[in-house]
Nucleic acid binder design. Structure first.
Lengths: 143, 143
DNA sequence: GGCATCCCCAGCGATGTAGTTGGAAATACG
DNA sequence: CGTATTTCCAACTACATCGCTGGGGATGCC
């Protein structure tokens, strides 16, 4: 798959929070984990990363939980992925110095650029819309 | 990086072989490895994969080596990558059944589709042209 | 104070990646 | 024929990462 479990779990959680954002919605780790079938102690770590990345805000104590730090339209998926994938600073390997390696490096650059374009061009709101549409058509079939 | 070392090494080797293909060129593992600074016993495995994938042909015994099984224009990079990355059949994870996971899955699909489009749309000849152009401009600077 | 909830960080098993090694089979060449 | 050269096959190691679990600690509502 294109994403690690970390990233998938984080994005799914953000989607859940985005869905109730207009109501200023707050969800607890355990709630999200139960609904999505994710180990809660693991999910905790992703939400912590997202908080450190200023994407989530947390509320401690009883009746606490997490909520989006910004409206979904202002959260780019690229940002989320960087935050969850751990950056892996200078993931680029020490480029070997031959014309052949440079050409391959160029191809890799184009691949990552294409990926980045999609991730930058998609906001959490876009995914939320997609989700709502999906749920909508499920209801249609149901009737 | 977008590629594993395996894939990079394999592609670099293919580039070297493509460069001398019009002369029906043959190179030995040790030659390529030395020129590119790759451990030769490791590179051996990549070239074996490429042979099994019908991308290379091998000649055994003294004065043996490897050569392209087809002209570079007929070798798509997508094919090479599949061959080297080991396929990892059904790399796709067991998709969780929630609207949120489905939406994320959709995004992953678009990412992989974009990647695939580039890899399908690039032939070994394309990379070879890029290499030659790069070498050409190096000479320019040299003068 | 007590309980619910987030916070931090350490560790663990499975898997994958990069590379090494040992030897068997084919074949050109003298 | 014999030997050196080269590919072929398959196992093995070292290390990192991934997905996940666990133990406490901090905070804050009641």
């Amino acid at each position: 798959m294109a994403f690690s479990a970390k990233t998938e779990y984080g994005l799914v959680s953000l989607l859940e929070l985005a869905a109730i954002h207009p109501q200023g919605g707050v969800l607890q780790v355990a709630e999200i984990a139960a609904r999505q079938g994710i180990p809660d102690r693991y999910l905790e770590q992703m939400l912590t990363s997202l908080r450190r990345g200023q994407i989530l805000r947390s509320i401690r104590g009883p009746r606490g939980g997490y909520q989006l730090a910004r409206p979904p339209a202002e959260i780019r998926i690229a940002e989320v992925v960087v935050c969850l994938e751990g950056e892996l600073a200078s993931r680029g390997t020490a480029a070997r110095q031959s014309a052949e390696f440079e050409v391959i490096g160029g191809l890799e650059g184009r691949l990552e650029q294409a990926r980045q374009a999609i991730l930058e061009g998609t906001s959490l709101q876009d995914l939320l819309d997609e989700r709502d549409q999906r749920l909508q058509s499920q209801v249609m079939y149901f009737i």
